[in-house]
Every structure is written in C-alpha cells, then in structure tokens.
Design a protein around this nucleic acid. Structure first.
Lengths: 118, 118
DNA sequence: CACTTTTTTTAGAATAATTCTAAAAAATAA
DNA sequence: TTATTTTTTAGAATTATTCTAAAAAAAGTG
C-alpha cells in the first residue's frame, strides 16, 4: 500500500459522486502535486481487481468509479447528467426468479429527470 | 435515404448480434468497397436519433448498436462475452412503482454464465 | 426538367480516454 | 543490509470517436 494508492482510495471513499479517472487525478494532484495520471489509472485497475472499488461504465463512454461494490441502482438525470445511487434490496433475487437461472451481478441505469431539473 | 444509409440499416436489421461501428463498417465495405468509416458513424448517430436503432454501451467501452429500440434486458456471458436479448414485459412499470416517479428508460445488463460456457 | 438549396459522403486530421513502455523509486522479503 | 518485487513516473502509443472542409448526391422549386 503506497501513499499514492492510499490517497486514491481515500478520495473515492470520501466522494459522494461517481468520479472519472481524470476527476480523481485532479483531486489527487491538489494533495500530492507530483502524482502521475498513469498512477491513478494503475491504482483504479488494481483497486477494482481486489474489489475495493467498482468500475462503472455509462453512456458517455468514460469510466467512473464507485466506492461501493454492493449492487445498487444508478439513477441518471438526462438533463444535468448527475448520477445518484438508489438502494435495491432483493432486486438480484427478483431478477433470478424472473429469469429462472442464477446471475453473477447486474448493472441497472435508470434515466429520468431529477428533482432539480424538473 | 442514401444507398449508404440503407445498407447500414439493413446490416443492423439482419444481424442477430450487437455490432460495433467497426464491425458494421467491415460488413458494409464487403458490399460497398468505397464506403467511409465516417459515413458509418454519421449514420449510426442519425439512425439512433430518429429511433430506428439503439446505441448501447457495455463495459468494454465500445458502443454497440441494436436493431430494437424496444426496451429489453441484455444478458452478458462473463465467460465468452456474448450478449443476448431477453424480453422484459412490464419491467418499466415495475421500476416506476418501486421508485415512485416516472422514468424515461432503463438499461439493464445482467452478467451470468451462458449455457454453452457452463 | 434545369437550377438552387440542403444534406450526405468522403478522406484525413484532430481529440480524448486509456493503455503501454522502460527506467527510477519505493516497498517488501530474506 | 541486500536482494527481489512492486509501484511510480513521464511520455509515447493506441483506439474509438468526432471534426473539418470540399465534393457528391439528394431533395425542393418553378
């Protein structure tokens, strides 16, 4: 566990958002000016592999990173683009019943207009 | 409706797969050797805008195109990577009841191990 | 049809996110 | 400590996609 890796993990855990690699890099640079973008990418891959964080892919084709690997619904506002989390207790079992076979995981993005943008 | 546009639309409608822009370009070139990759991209954007096809984004960060704009579930095999369609009657209403507000659309990718890969 | 206007196509350049490379630095193990 | 492994770094490379500007094609008009 290097200083860089600890910083990146902390930034993701402290964030309420779903940041892109570049957003994480910008925050990291503020605390550790010499950090390299490649280090951020390396660690995002590593942290995803060990299950500490979760890589998400949305329609804008930039990967975003989520502190929670617990499955949940992503609410995407089609006006402002903001992504919120929504709990989804029991959804995986419901899906398995509907389909009739076991599943590994699911990704559910729901597009709507958020309260601010109504 | 140009010859190029008609060809691209036909290729997507005839395919059972979810092709990337480049895969569509390769097929198109076989029938119309002079066609440009940019033409494929232009038409994929145009056909998506008018609702003839649907742009999908999966975890490998390449856009894929689906002949059906009727919402449905995508089953992704984590072993071979193949993507199948699965009908999902009533799922949107179920989601709206669960959430308590209207939604525009949803994207649901379910990861599993397909029959061939069991 | 002839002519004008709009849309589309084309080739290639530009962009942007991500990955790769190879050497230096840091961390870990013995 | 010394050796070994892992990580970091800067910058180059890659890849999917978008942009640009001129030529071609299609659509609209009298």
């Amino acid at each position: 566990m290097t200083k860089q890796r600890a910083l990146i993990l902390r930034l993701i855990r402290e964030s309420k958002r779903h940041m892109t690699a570049d957003e994480i890099y910008q925050l990291a640079k503020a605390e550790m000016p010499g950090i390299a973008l490649a280090t951020v990418y390396n660690n995002l891959i590593h942290l995803s592999e060990i299950g500490e964080i979760k890589k998400l892919t949305f329609r804008d084709r930039t990967d975003r990173y989520d502190k929670s690997s617990i499955p949940h619904i992503h609410l995407v506002c089609d006006v402002c683009g903001k992504v919120c989390d929504h709990p989804s207790e029991g959804l995986q079992q419901e899906m398995e019943q509907r389909l009739g076979f076991p599943i590994h995981e699911y990704e559910l993005a729901i597009h709507y207009t958020c309260e601010n943008c109504q």
